[in-house]
Every structure is written in structure tokens, then in C-alpha cells.
Design a protein around this nucleic acid. Structure first.
Lengths: 111, 111
DNA sequence: ATATATTATCGTATATTTGCGATAAAGGAT
DNA sequence: ATCCTTTATCGCAAATATACGATAATATAT
């Protein structure tokens, strides 16, 4: 049983899906919120703010980083993360383009 | 082992995550694109356009509907779907609010 | 009433995600 | 050098998601 046919879709569709997937868990939304609210970068403070174990938070951070939504630098024994605003703008823009542009002509909902 | 602690997060965090999750698969992105491009509602045409079995497409449609991103009405033996633009605007707005608003003060990336 | 067409649901196999504890790795402090 | 702090990774258990075929459900057509 050939499961997961993601390859069968277009590059852009996969990219948008990956972006959405990175934000598809409340813990990751919460992490992004914390990072967005601080001017300086955060590291293990996130662990204290979330109701999850350190290893779990680290895993979520890794996923966000892999997806390109956050940047991380090692600062001595601790890690410093912050939001990658450029990536955010890019994806939000693509979503807006994809759906807002088309919305104009479709304003008259059919269902 | 108490897995999935979504309940431990705020209502809004869960809502945003659920919205993102509904769009976290390329097939569902593709479905939304098709629905957005047509003025009239679509039904099984989607199945012909996607590289997936009918039952799988139906499952994806159900997820999109449950998440509130699309509306569906039964029209005889066929089903008619279309995008719920209001829900879309709501969520896109919340994301923009959450991240764009904060972006201003954080323009100076730290990492 | 019977067939046909369309869509939803069920059952099932497999893949992925989530979460934690334990452990490793890396640097700072004494 | 030895501890201590911080973070990443590994290994594992359990929950979800993905996909399909088969079947049920529904309405139209003959």
C-alpha cells in the first residue's frame, strides 16, 4: 500500500502544506507567540512556559527550524531562537495571494 | 502515557493550530485551490483532478468541512462544496494579527 | 421496481506524530 | 579536572493520519 503520495502534488502545494503543518500544533503556535513577543531571543525559557517536557519542546523547536519558521544560534551552552520573519511574510503572502485574489470574483458564495 | 496534551493550551492556540492542520496536506491545498477557482460549486470533479482514490478525496473533504474551511450541500445524488470565505478571512486575520502586529517592534532580527 | 451514478462510511494496513525519560554533548563555574 | 547547567538526541509507547478497496446510502433514470 503506497502511502503518502505527497510527491504527486505540485511544489508550491507541498510548500504551503509544509508551512501549515509546522503550525498545526498548539505547542508550536505557543512557541511562535513567545518568540514573537520578545525582542531578544529565547532559549530554555520556553520550556518553563509550556506544559511539556524539555525534550518535547526541543523537538517542536527542531520542527519549526526545519520548516524555516525560526532561526536558531548556539550561544554557549544555551540555544537562542527567534522568528524568521522573512519566511513568515513569504508564506502568509502566498496564502493571501492564493485565496484572497480569487475571493474577489467568488464573493457570491454558492453553497 | 498521557499523549496529546492539546487541552493544555489556550482556546485560540488550539483554533489556530486546527486551522493550520486542515491545510497541512498538499491534497487539501489542492482541493481548496480548485474550489477557489470555480464560481460554481464542485463535487466529484475534484476526484478527477486529484491523484487519489474517491474515498480518500471524500475523507479530505470531510476534514476540510469539519474544520469549517468549506461548506457542503447535498444536491441530489451529488455533493456540492465551496470555500467558506468568512472562516478563511477570520483565520488569516488572526494569523496576521498575531505575527504582523508583533513584527513591527521586532524588525531587528536577533539571531 | 430495478438499475445507474455519485458520494459517504467502514475496515484495515502502514506511516507519521506526539510525548516522555534517559542519555549524550558542550560549555561555564568552582 | 570535576561538577553543574543547558540543550539535543535516542529509544520507545501510544495516538493520529493517510490511503485504498469494499460496501452502504441516496437520488435519479429507465
Amino acid at each position: 500500500m503506497a502511502i503518502h503520495k505527497k510527491e504527486a502534488f505540485s511544489q508550491k502545494e507541498q510548500e504551503l502544506a509544509a508551512f501549515a503543518k509546522a503550525m498545526s500544533h498548539p505547542a508550536r503556535i505557543a512557541i511562535l507567540k513567545v518568540l514573537a513577543q520578545r525582542n531578544e531571543c529565547i532559549c530554555g525559557e520556553i520550556v518553563d512556559l509550556l506544559p511539556l517536557a524539555q525534550s518535547t519542546v526541543s523537538q517542536h523547536l527542531k520542527e519549526l527550524k526545519t520548516a524555516g519558521l525560526i532561526d536558531g544560534t548556539i550561544d554557549g551552552p544555551r540555544s537562542c531562537y527567534c522568528i524568521n520573519w522573512k519566511a513568515f511574510e513569504k508564506f502568509m503572502g502566498e496564502f493571501s495571494f492564493l485565496f484572497n485574489k480569487l475571493k474577489v470574483q467568488n464573493e457570491k458564495a454558492c453553497c
